[in-house]
């Protein structure tokens, strides 16, 4: 047991890591994941995926998953949450599961608003894919 225990609240002192190899390993991992995200994002910027909506959505999904891995490594290793006892980990992680519901529910809601607007609350065909160049109707001398 270490001789600089902070308080009596600590039952088991975590022995400090001998060297910094784990930190650098995670640094390279985070750099690699970020580089992969940037490469996929750069592909989108340079239109490598053409107009393939499904492929673009898939690439964006992959980027989101890579981000989740980055978040896991930052929290687990850099913030040392992975070294804490299970009780503490659970009290932090369990409430955050609410985000699963939040994200699904709110994005669904946003999409629903879009449909309601585009169909005037389901009273006409969806106008989403009609090319809308906003100024067309507001141009002087043009019919709306």
């Amino acid at each position: 047991m270490s001789n600089h225990s902070a308080t009596s609240e600590i039952t088991f002192e975590h022995a400090p890591a001998e060297n910094t190899s784990r930190i650098w390993k995670v640094f390279w991992l985070l750099s690699f994941l970020t580089a992969a995200e940037l490469l996929l994002g750069y592909g989108h910027a340079r239109h490598w995926y053409g107009g393939n909506e499904g492929l673009i959505l898939f690439v964006k999904g992959v980027i989101c998953i890579l981000t989740a891995f980055k978040a896991y490594y930052i929290v687990s290793v850099f913030m040392h949450l992975g070294d804490e006892v299970r009780n503490l980990i659970m009290t932090i992680v369990t409430p955050l599961l609410l985000f699963v519901w939040f994200i699904i529910a709110f994005l669904w809601d946003g999409d629903s608003w879009k449909t309601l607007r585009n169909t005037d609350a389901h009273s006409r065909p969806n106008i989403e894919n009609i090319k809308h160049h906003a100024p067309a109707s507001a141009m002087p001398g043009e019919k709306p």
Binding site: F102, I103, G110, W113, K114, R117, N118
Partner: peptide, 28 residues
Amino acid sequence: MWYFLMSDAFTFGAFLISYGTIRFSVNF
């Protein structure tokens, strides 16, 4: 500190989800 950060995560999460909702609700 962990609980503060968890609450802050909800604040940022609310902002980002609100942004996502608005982004999903417009055509462009």
